[in-house]
Amino acid sequence: HNGKLCKLKGIAPLQLGKCNITGWLLGNPECDSLLPARSWSYIVETPNSENGACYPGDLIDYEELREQLSSVSSLERFEIFPKESSWPNHTFNGVTVSCSHRGKSSFYRNLLWLTKKGDSYPKLTNSYVNNKGKEVLVLWGVHHPSSSDEQQSLYSNGNAYVSVASSNYNRRFTPEIAARPKVRDQHGRMNYYWTLLEPGDTIIFEATGNLIAPWYAFALSRGFESGIITSNASMHECNTKCQTPQGAINSNLPFQNIHPVTIGECPKYVRSTKLRMVTGLRNIPSIQYRGLFGAIAGFIEGGWTGMIDGWYGYHHQNEQGSGYAADQKSTQNAINGITNKVNSVIEKMNTQFTAVGKEFNNLEKRMENLNKKVDDGFLDIWTYNAELLVLLENERTLDFHDLNVKNLYEKVKSQLKNNAKEIGNGCFEFYHKCDNECMESVRNGTYDYPKYSEESKLNREKIDGVKLESMGVYQILAIYSTVASSLVLLVSLGAISFWMCSNGSLQCRICI
């Protein structure tokens, strides 16, 4: 991952900044910058967002509201009850120091605090018919004063009620008058409520006091790749198909172990950190130390980045220098085999997901714990399936590479015959000098055995068991695999060879 928040398929997220979902939807004055928000790819909250409900109280069923919003990608904020005409018999300019803005008392931008007009609070009834052709999110509140005197001074009615009804919602609220500790300079409380109004449905408000009335509502448009994440990451000019709280993932790998919460087309989250597919040879310690064997393909974004291909070729060293050249036929066979294998694994496992966190309130801790156990169970199954699949494929890959290298080895052996000696570690020792032209003939299969047989015969008789390297004779190393990324691999195959001279070296080696 890149540690950044990015656009998702070209669409920017909605960053709530210092506000949370509650503050944004109710219209906390400190969240005025969010009022123009219309569309987004996903919503970003920060872990310690401080601006929620400015007048103390709870947004009821907040967790369910977050779940609903996680599939919303755009909205239209509109005046559901026009301020100047909807409440002619009531005062609608209630403000509070708890919702101060720029040093002055204020109130929510989407709600109206209705109080008595003169000395009376006549029963009010108002309704709205949803003609938007889509779901409408309606929010309101109920004020709970701290004393009967406060109730009387604001609403005149000691036994007030609030009723809200639609086809799918029907509740009646009565204020709970009680002494409470002071929070944000208030002994009173406000509880906030919401409902989704279906197209064509009607919502009716009736009250004799204590109503925090809707002013603006939201017509919602769903987008199934949307979601809500909690993150401290910063926004950058970048684009992605998959976003996590820790950063964007741009990967076609089937798995990731970065974060379980994802938005967009994302690899499946697994616990494993070692889900690797081999593309090189079986481990040979001396070669492995030099980083030549054991190439791997990573299938977990965050564990290993991208696929690494092994390729086969020849390396030689003689009086004229040293050089490398790919054996294109065996390399292409290996590439085709690995590509098919990788595609097979991805096809089997690479279903892209959006995974969002589930919200539970403080009273639902047991449910949250149960949900976590269920999620953990599914996660263990996914991890096991992934590891088992790759384990089985790896064994076949190792066998496949062994065969490829063996074929190259036999190709060289059949040409050199007794003009060189096998020394048991995949290397041959020449009994004759071999210049670049000679080396090329070994690589392309045109090695002239009779041409060098007499010199080889004489050297075999002279050496008589002495280690060949100390006599200045020449080696050919018969097994060799270097490691390159897919891009470098293609470039390498396009070149005939490249040279690395070893000044004054008397050794001649050709490596497979």
Rank of each mutant, 00 (worst) to 15 (best):
M471S: 08
K241S: 14
G424T: 13
E319N: 06
N444M: 15
P245S: 13
Q507P: 08
P285L: 05
H315K: 06
G310N: 01
E237Y: 02
V356S: 10
N503Y: 15
W304D: 12
H316K: 02
P254Y: 03
G494Q: 01
L487W: 13
K341F: 00
E469V: 12
D375W: 06
R282D: 09
S481N: 08
S456M: 10
G303Q: 03
R366S: 06
A420C: 05
G357D: 13
L458K: 11
A495D: 06
I476L: 13
A355P: 05
E437K: 08
F430P: 13
R443D: 02
L403C: 04
H259A: 15
K457L: 08
E359H: 06
H401K: 10
S497T: 13
D309R: 05
S414C: 10
N333K: 13
G494V: 04
E461C: 00
N371W: 14
Y324D: 04
G323E: 06
K462A: 11
M500A: 14
R282W: 08
D375P: 06
S456W: 01
P450H: 11
Y449L: 13
S456F: 02
G264H: 04
P260K: 13
V466A: 11
G337D: 00
I284H: 12
K451N: 09
L506I: 11
L493D: 00
F430Y: 11
V374I: 14
N362S: 13
G504V: 08
D464P: 02
A478L: 14
M367E: 05
K358D: 01
S453P: 00
D448Q: 07
H316R: 03
S505M: 08
I287L: 13
N283K: 11
K358R: 02
E387H: 09
Q415I: 13
Q320N: 07
G291C: 08
N394T: 05
S231N: 12
L416R: 03
Y480Q: 08
P260G: 06
L370V: 12
E237Q: 13
K373Y: 04
Q352D: 08
N418T: 15
T351Y: 08
K467G: 02
G377N: 10
M471D: 02
H315Y: 15
R366E: 11
N419S: 07
F430R: 07
I479V: 11
Y480T: 06
V488S: 01
V278K: 06
A297T: 06
R276H: 10
I496D: 05
N418V: 13
I263L: 14
W499A: 10
G357S: 15
Q256I: 06
